[in-house]
Nucleic acid binder design. Structure first.
Lengths: 227, 227
DNA sequence: GTCTATATCACGATAGAC
DNA sequence: GTCTATCGTGATATAGAC
């Protein structure tokens, strides 16, 4: 009973509702955004009453931030193993993209949640809560990883002299936006975006585009600029 | 007085509040989404009472759809001139990207509004209102234009054999997402995304990436795949 | 930890005077 | 076309019994 692992199991069991709530809230917030979801709906979908939920999370924004923190942590766990320096930049970029797309495809709500959070972030400029700071820090680390890969590639001359920041933006657009585009993207691409084949094709298309798009040109060999 | 142009002026004056409401609503909906904005806030920011707003727009969703319709129309006006067939695909793509970025940068609320609309679209699957159908049709035409350019380029062999649909997604990500990323993107890129120089750099970066990324490889000349 | 009951408030929308 | 006043509902959050 005083074994630490018992404590962990106990605590896990005690927080079973906790996890259920987070799961449900993640789905709902991704679908309808922060203000589009009521805590009552979250609670009852998770199988509790509203008041019980307020026992687990002090208020709605705390719940929201907990959801975001879990999602960002999941992504960081996927991404950090790809940051080992002992590889060439092109391969590191490929692995980073693969890992991010895997993370986004595995939990289909993630992409939308992230973009929504990005949008709703600078609505409330006043609230630098501790959890909020933590979220920003995690996000910063994730972005730093990609920026590092790109900057190194440029410095080593294996990538063109692109702006790392702008390329980061484009990578995010190519990955997060794609998996957040929902019905629109599904209709455009002709089927579910998270089906196994669709995910594999997305990886191929994105990696190929950046492969060709970032590759340093051998000098004097512009891509078709033969005017 | 019975001159037709007088009628136009009269009607314009009569609908002055109309335009003001649309302007305010566009800003607020872009910032906080459909459910994050109350009609009271829209009305009072526009300088009227809530009831007066309901005289101009029957209900909240009608107002929302009017905002979206105006935004999409603005974009289509910018984009359709770039669809003339008498140019090579690479130039057509460049002009399309330039026009879209111009539209997004000129009205900074547009990008966010569009992405939000995309997300909130498949929340309510039940409501095929006339205005909603119209929005979808406009969006469809816009996307069709880009798809046409890409497909033609692939068919003519000036682009690699990419998936048009996936490339459309990536272009949207590189443009709409970028200008929707707000404070996050601004911090990443080191300044306002809609400043003149920032817009010009974004155009250059995006066009260069797709220029190199889509260019057909001369056969046997993989982009650095010299393993 | 979970519940019922309640407080308080803002929401979308309408009625009707001017 | 604009307003005040109001209706009905659902929101977040709390109090307190079990």
């Amino acid at each position: 009973m005083n074994d630490p692992s018992d404590r962990a199991v106990e605590s896990q069991a005690a927080h079973a509702s906790h996890h259920k709530i987070l799961e449900v809230a993640e789905m709902l917030f991704a679908r309808r955004g922060f203000s589009g979801v009521g805590v009552r709906e979250v609670a009852e979908t998770a199988g509790l009453s509203k008041s019980s939920l307020f026992h687990h999370f002090r208020n709605k924004v705390e719940l929201y931030e907990a959801v975001l923190a879990r999602v960002l942590a999941r992504i960081e766990d996927r991404l950090s193993p790809t940051l080992s320096d002992d590889e060439r930049c092109r391969e590191r970029l490929d692995r980073w993209i693969d890992a991010l797309i895997d993370a986004l495809a595995e939990h289909p709500t993630t992409a939308r949640l992230l973009l929504r959070a990005l949008f709703e972030d600078d609505d409330r400029p006043s609230e630098p809560s501790a959890a909020g700071k933590d979220l920003q820090a995690t996000l910063g680390r994730i972005i730093e990883g990609l920026t590092g890969i790109l900057a190194a590639g440029v410095e080593q001359g294996v990538f063109r002299a692109v702006s790392s920041a702008h390329t980061v933006q484009t990578v995010i657009g190519a990955t997060v936006y794609h998996f957040a585009s929902g019905d629109f993207g599904a209709e455009l691409c002709g089927g579910s975006l998270v089906a196994r084949d669709a995910v594999r094709q997305r990886k191929r298309e994105v990696k190929a585009l950046f492969h060709h798009g970032l590759a340093a040109v051998p000098a004097g060999a512009g891509a078709g600029g033969a005017t």
